[in-house]
Measured scan of single mutants.
Amino acid sequence: MAASAHGSVWGPLRLGIPGLCCRRPPLGLYARMRRLPGPEVSGRSVAAASGPGAWGTDHYCLELLRKRDYEGYLCSLLLPAESRSSVFALRAFNVELAQVKDSVSEKTIGLMRMQFWKKTVEDIYCDNPPHQPVAIELWKAVKRHNLTKRWLMKIVDEREKNLDDKAYRNIKELENYAENTQSSLLYLTLEILGIKDLHADHAASHIGKAQGIVTCLRATPYHGSRRKVFLPMDICMLHGVSQEDFLRRNQDKNVRDVIYDIASQAHLHLKHARSFHKTVPVKAFPAFLQTVSLEDFLKKIQRVDFDIFHPSLQQKNTLLPLYLYIQSWRKTY
Rank of each mutant, 00 (worst) to 15 (best):
A47M: 15
A48I: 15
S50A: 15
G53P: 15
G53Q: 09
G53D: 08
A54Q: 13
A54V: 08
A54W: 10
W55K: 13
W55Q: 14
W55P: 15
T57M: 12
D58Y: 07
D58K: 14
D58R: 09
D58H: 13
D58A: 11
H59Y: 10
Y60M: 07
L62D: 04
L62H: 14
L62F: 12
E63T: 15
L64R: 09
R68T: 12
D69I: 00
G72T: 08
L74H: 02
C75W: 09
C75F: 09
L78F: 10
L78H: 05
L78M: 09
L79H: 14
P80V: 02
E82M: 13
R84N: 04
R84Y: 05
R84E: 01
S85M: 11
A89V: 03
L90G: 02
L90C: 09
F93V: 03
F93W: 15
N94A: 05
K101A: 14
D102C: 10
S103H: 13
V104R: 10
K107V: 10
G110T: 08
L111N: 13
Q115G: 14
V121K: 03
E122N: 11
I124T: 03
Y125W: 08
Y125G: 03
C126N: 14
C126Y: 15
N128P: 03
P129A: 10
P133N: 07
V134Q: 02
V134M: 07
A135F: 04
A135H: 01
I136G: 03
I136E: 10
E137P: 04
E137A: 15
L138D: 02
W139E: 03
A141P: 00
A141K: 01
T148Q: 15
I155D: 01
I155G: 01
D157W: 10
R159Y: 08
E160W: 13
K161W: 09
N162W: 13
N162F: 07
L163A: 08
D164K: 13
D164S: 15
D165F: 10
D165Y: 07
K166P: 12
A167Q: 08
R169Q: 11
K172D: 12
E173S: 11
E175H: 01
Y177N: 06
E179D: 08
N180R: 10
N180P: 02
S183D: 03
S183Y: 00
S183E: 02
Y187K: 07
Y187R: 07
L188R: 00
L188C: 10
T189D: 02
L190H: 02
I192D: 02
G194W: 00
I195S: 05
K196P: 03
D201C: 04
H206G: 04
G208Q: 01
G208S: 01
K209Y: 01
Q211A: 14
I213M: 10
R218S: 06
A219W: 05
P221H: 12
Y222P: 06
Y222M: 10
H223L: 12
G224H: 14
G224E: 07
R226K: 14
R226Y: 12
K228C: 14
V229R: 03
F230V: 15
P232I: 00
D234L: 02
D234E: 12
I235W: 04
C236R: 03
M237A: 15
M237G: 11
L238C: 12
Q243G: 06
E244R: 04
D245I: 06
D245Q: 13
F246W: 09
F246L: 12
F246R: 02
F246H: 01
F246Q: 02
R248P: 03
N250K: 13
Q251D: 13
Q251M: 15
D252R: 13
K253D: 15
N254Q: 02
V255K: 07
D257L: 09
V258H: 00
I262N: 03
A263R: 00
A263M: 03
A263Q: 04
Q265D: 06
A266H: 01
A266N: 01
A266S: 07
L270Y: 01
K271F: 09
H272E: 11
A273L: 00
A273E: 00
A273R: 00
R274E: 03
S275A: 10
T279M: 15
V280Y: 00
P281N: 08
P281S: 06
V282D: 13
V282N: 09
V282M: 08
F285T: 12
P286Y: 09
L289P: 00
L289Q: 08
L289T: 08
S293C: 12
L294K: 02
L294Y: 01
E295L: 08
E295M: 10
E295S: 09
E295W: 08
D296T: 06
F297H: 08
K299C: 13
K299F: 09
K300M: 12
K300G: 08
I301D: 01
R303A: 12
V304W: 04
D307H: 05
D307G: 00
D307K: 02
D307C: 04
I308Q: 02
H310F: 01
H310M: 00
Q314Y: 11
Q315Y: 11
Q315G: 07
L320K: 02
Y323H: 14
Y323C: 12
L324C: 09
Y325Q: 13
Q327T: 10
W329H: 09
W329T: 08
R330I: 12
K331Q: 13
Y333A: 01
